[in-house]
Amino acid sequence: MSHMSTLLEVSGVSVSFDGFKAINNLSFQIGPAEMRAIIGPNGAGKTTFMDIVTGKTRPDDGRVIWGEKSVSLLKMSEAQIAQAGVGRKFQKPTVFEDQTVHANMLIALKNDRGFLASLLYRPSNKDLARVDELAGEIGLSDQLDRLSGELSHGQKQWLEIGMLLAQEPRLLLVDEPAAGMTLAEREHTTAILVEAAKTRAVVVVEHDMEFVRRLDCKVTVLHEGSVLAEGSLDHVTANSRVIDVYLGR
């Protein structure tokens, strides 16, 4: 992959907690409009990988390079990384439960993040239209005035994805979006993510093979903190080492 078409480049990253190597010389690249699934057994380092990219965890070693200007994300705070265009969805749906769906979307909407700007903020017609549009995309148009704590599990997941989209990130990191969802909800979630990946990079961490198959994208298999295999789902599931460490169990 040429340098120009790389949005995020992680190279040679290692991190250990109390002697346990959670990430071991990991290298990973993703382009500006690409869907990628990351799979791997428990403890393979999937969540730690996300923590490193979003600035929550500092690696002991390696580089994380972002965007056309090739800036290092390692020197930036979580908030700065988010502002630079990295959005993250947690495994458990995390929305602001005692606020309406509309208020949740307004907080997330891409605008000046300074405290004075927030204090003086009045939603413009453009902002309100954008919230309506996004609510349509995630299927919550008729729920805007409800408290988000009252939503179903699946709806909360969509709301959080909608909030991520409202941030207008260039890279979306999504941790197990399909967990606990019904079949119909999964289909809807797949559609939202596939649509999002047309204009930005989307990385989905997932356990569920069936869901990964639906995404129909390149797959990276993590094992013991480094990349074990990469390619189409059929390609990696045919890999004997992958079968040994992950699928064979």
């Binding site: 979003t54 979580e78 995390t94 005692d98 307004l106 907080i107 927030s118 204090l119 903020y121």
Partner: peptide
């Protein structure tokens, strides 16, 4: 307003607010 939404967000889930870029 939005400031109030954000501080209540900080109360309920600080890291979510942080990862939204605040």
């Amino acid at each position: 307003g939005k400031f109030g939404s954000i501080i209540r967000g900080i109360r309920d889930n600080e890291s979510r607010v942080r990862f939204l870029g605040y």
